[in-house]
Amino acid sequence: MAVKTSGWRGSEELWLEAAYQLLIEQGVEAVKVMPLAKRVGLSRTSFYGHFDSREALLAALIARWQDKNTGNMVARTRAFAETIAEAVLNLFDCWLQPGLFDAQLDFAIRNWALGDPALRAVLESTDQDRIAAIRAMFERFGYAPAEAEVRAFTVYYTQIGYVSMMVVEPPELRLPRMPYYVQTFTGTAASDSELARFVSRHGMTLQDLRPDQG
């Protein structure tokens, strides 16, 4: 609960975080000034010290989604990798670290876009930007443009399927599947050293990945 002091109107981030929580919990229709004010323990007037309108707040939520989810996805496709398998594992970090890619926020934005044509257009453009980044990653490792595009579709649509179906898998279940996903998406296998570096970023070892080989 917010600690109120005389004249304190909260911060822009406080209001934005409260709006984010309402969005993922109840959908965009719940993101209104009075419920937000009640949630943060401040007056309705305090909201307008940070945002001109509800629409400005909604625009900030969309910007947060674009900056975090799309920005991090694109960055991971451009991260250093010696092979396409390693590049795909770099991208997989997004699916395992909510700090890089917020699946709940992506789901909420997609639901919101169903009833908002303007946001739908933004979402469609954003999806194309993400696919283009993955396609460029494959092309960087010598895949022909047509093949790179189909492989990019396969990678991206698989993950968006996880998001849309609200699939939640613990790391100990999902991580052992990653080598098979790499093989499926790229046509090549990740090396032991590549897999070891990957799982170490997620608090596991290569042995954890292959418990049946112990």
Rank of each mutant, 00 (worst) to 15 (best):
D106I: 02
R177N: 03
F92S: 05
L100D: 05
E29A: 11
R201E: 11
V33R: 15
V28K: 06
Y48N: 05
V122R: 15
L22K: 11
F185S: 07
G99T: 05
Q21D: 07
E169W: 00
A144W: 11
A37G: 12
Y48Q: 02
G187L: 11
L57E: 10
P176M: 13
F185E: 10
I160H: 03
L36P: 08
V150A: 06
N69E: 10
K4G: 01
L23R: 03
A148I: 02
A19S: 10
A19T: 10
P98V: 03
A189H: 09
R130Q: 06
V31I: 09
L57P: 07
S11R: 14
M166Y: 00
T184P: 02
V33F: 05
N69A: 06
Q104H: 12
F153R: 07
T126R: 03
A152V: 06
E86C: 07
D93T: 08
V199I: 01
E29W: 04
M137N: 11
L57I: 08
V155T: 07
S200M: 14
D93W: 09
L173E: 13
R197G: 14
L123E: 12
F80G: 09
G187I: 08
S11D: 01
L58V: 03
V163A: 05
A146V: 13
H50Y: 10
A85G: 07
A103N: 02
R174Y: 04
F101H: 09
S125N: 02
T126D: 03
E172P: 10
M166S: 04
R135I: 00
A59T: 02
A103F: 01
D208C: 05
L57Y: 13
G99W: 01
R39Q: 14
K68P: 01
V167Q: 12
F101L: 09
H202S: 01
A37M: 05
R201V: 01
T186G: 08
E124N: 12
L57S: 11
T205A: 14
P117K: 13
D127Y: 10
I62P: 00
S46M: 11
P211S: 00
R151F: 03
L173W: 07
Y180R: 15
V122W: 14
A196W: 02
S125G: 03
A18L: 06
P171G: 10
Q97C: 01
E86H: 12
P176A: 12
L42E: 05
N111T: 05
L14R: 11
T184Q: 06
G161Y: 09
S43H: 13
W15A: 07
W15L: 04
P176G: 13
D208Q: 05
Q159Y: 09
S164Y: 06
V31G: 06
A85M: 02
V199C: 15
R9D: 00
V167L: 13
L96R: 09
D212V: 12
D127N: 14
A196E: 14
R151Q: 06
V122L: 15
L119K: 13
D52I: 01
G71T: 05
L123K: 15
A148E: 09
V33A: 12
T83L: 14
A132K: 14
M34T: 10
F80D: 14
Q97L: 09
